[in-house]
Amino acid sequence: MTYIDNLEQFPYPFKGNMYRYSNNSIPLDVPKSVDITSNYEEEIKLKRQLLRDHPKRCFQSLSHTLKAQWEILALVMNHLVNYYPDKFSLTKTNTLWTFRNLILNETQQFIYGDESTLLQQPLDFIGRHVQEDLILMSERDGNLYLDAGQLCFPANWSLAFDLGMSFREIHYPIPGFKEEKLDDRILNFLLRLEAGNPWGRNNWSLMAGNRLDTSLETFDDWGKGRKQVTAENAGDLVHLRVEVQTLFRLSRSNGILFTIHTHLLPLRKLAEKRAWLEQFYHILQELPPYIVDYKGLSLFKDVVIDYLKVQLEKEDAS
């Protein structure tokens, strides 16, 4: 099974020939937290399998978050029925809600605000109907904390370890992040996020393999792929991994919903677009060591650069 985006759907993340950490958020023109792609059914199946087999790895919550979780459920359901009316429906009779997923042919009735009427916690429930990972950041005493999340496709981090941590604590291991005061600047940006005015951003990495579930818990397994990259297999083995993220202030709980939709594209496909190929080649060549290191590219960056160079030369020749 592969979970690969085609070229036209792929959210290519780069703007110039250079990449640095920054708060590259922009206001969302369309206030939409979730996106349904052609991989929907495959990815939902994988998500639910991971949640069944590794519940603690994929879902964590602190007890005070239930109210905010209901708020997230309502927000995501509203987006699903507003943006995909042919795929989802929601009817409300007082507090009795009936949610239908027409893609999977599933119906769920529940009393809004009453956890006993759902099989999972509200965030865990609604996360099983979207391709996005869903993270709740609570605002507590002027700071933001990761207080609940459903995370099946992490880019090498552990939800179970990060639970309850402040924004600064979570990002503590990123080299250069603190020194450049990026943590403070992004935290201040997030604290000023307002209801009704959502934002979005992209993040990227390179991945040796095509797994979506690159959790820290399984790094001893999938991380080995980094040693297996050669100039011959790089086009198929190595993938550009892009996270499309959105940020919504929750007006009732004053928390923030952070959604992450992960896309993978093999380098062979990337190379089909001359502009992307050229730009990405420049970016990788110029990337400073601290970013190369943190993004886990040290073991195979040079091989990838060689691969991209060969592709460029091939095109020049033809």
Partner: peptide, 11 residues
């Protein structure tokens, strides 16, 4: 505007 909170309760 949408509701804004610059005077939240302490947690």
């Amino acid at each position: 505007s949408y509701p804004k909170n610059h005077f939240p309760l302490s947690f």
